[in-house]
């Protein structure tokens, strides 16, 4: 029993960067834009957070800076896809390469450095005493609590506000949204920007909370798993929670199983094998329930191209 609580409790922080990134990417894709640059934005967020925290000795400043970096990186993608109507896949991949290269360059001097101010666990009084749920959910660091709130807000805004309807409509059919008088570029810019902020935040979580060090390439595929969870979640924030913590759990198991003598190479494969499994399940569900990706995902919209 203690072991299970232990694993679950570790799964939450392991899943938090995934959750933050996925919430953002859900909004991006709901607006019809595919951003494959999540991995690159995350690693830039990670290095920014680490660097700024080191410079200022204030971890919150570091976290804030990572959201700015993430947002700015994403704006490059928005400019490519929305303004220039470039190929979204290529632009996203380029962003990932840019991020991994640039972060390596910036982060050179931080390699092996301890972080001056790390995000500490803050048990929530009262709530933490609830059996099982308490220690699992409420003995975490503040950014985890913020991610709970964000997950709720992302769900609430998507399905219960005018903004949510607009965002979803733009991703389903920009033509319809256009003829309803929606400013499509504005919505898409906003969604991509917000997605960048969230990915930056996810990256920051890795370098200032989860493993407070800087290692080159430390995201190690987190951004790609975010894209898989986005599909698994069927573009719904509430399902992103489930998906992210599932993956978090897999990551934790990876370390817990190591002492049992299983080859670390096989264990390192686990998240990716799991990704494939999860995508298979999601595809089945998509075809069965007649729900799927936003209909205009990845297609640039242009008015008056007829004739």
């Amino acid at each position: 029993m203690n072991l299970i609580v232990d694993i679950l409790r570790a799964a939450i922080p392991a899943g938090t960067p995934l959750l933050l990134g996925t919430l953002g990417e859900i909004y991006v894709e709901r607006s019809g834009i595919l951003n494959l640059g999540v991995e690159g934005i995350m690693i830039m967020g990670a290095v920014t957070a680490f660097g700024v925290t080191t410079l200022t000795s204030n971890v919150w400043l570091g976290i804030f800076a990572s959201t700015i970096t993430g947002g700015m990186m994403a704006l490059i993608h928005a400019f490519d896809c929305v303004t220039l109507k470039a190929n979204q896949t290529l632009s996203g991949l380029a962003l990932t390469m840019l991020g991994s290269g640039l972060s390596g360059l910036i982060g050179k001097r931080y390699i092996g450095m301890p972080l001056s101010s790390k995000l500490q666990n803050v048990p929530l009084k009262g709530l933490v005493n609830i059996p099982v749920i308490g220690p699992v959910l409420f003995d975490q660091d503040p950014l985890v609590y913020i991610s709970y709130i964000l997950a709720f807000l992302f769900w609430f805004f998507l399905f219960n506000t005018r903004f949510g309807i607009t965002l979803r409509s733009v991703g389903e059919s920009p033509e319809v949204a256009d003829s309803a008088g929606i400013n499509i570029p504005a919505i898409q810019y906003f969604a991509v920007f917000l997605g960048g902020i969230m990915s930056g935040l996810g990256g920051a979580y890795l370098s200032v909370a989860y493993a407070p060090v800087w290692i080159e390439g430390m995201t190690a595929g987190t951004g790609w798993i975010v894209l898989a969870i986005t599909i698994f979640s069927l573009w719904r924030p509430e399902r992103a929670i489930l998906g992210s913590y599932l993956f978090g759990g897999v990551r934790v198991l990876q370390y817990r199983l190591q002492p049992l003598g299983i080859s670390p190479n096989i264990l390192n494969m686990m998240p990716f094998v799991f990704t494939i499994l999860v995508l298979m399940i999601a595809s089945r569900e998509i075809s069965k329930k007649r729900i799927g990706a936003p209909a205009s995902l990845g297609v640039s919209y242009q008015r008056e191209k007829t004739l």
């Binding site: 219960n160 309807i165 979803r168 409509s169 389903e172 059919s173 309803a180 929606i182 209909a295």
Partner: peptide
């Protein structure tokens, strides 16, 4: 304008389609 090919979002409900771009509905719970 009611176009020949309806400008409706197939996967959305009637309410969501009518609410799209509609002013005066309130931001929350339109």
């Amino acid at each position: 304008m009611v176009h020949q090919n309806f400008k409706l979002i197939q996967s959305h409900t009637v309410v969501e389609n009518v609410a799209l771009g509609l002013k005066g509905t309130g931001f929350f719970f339109p």
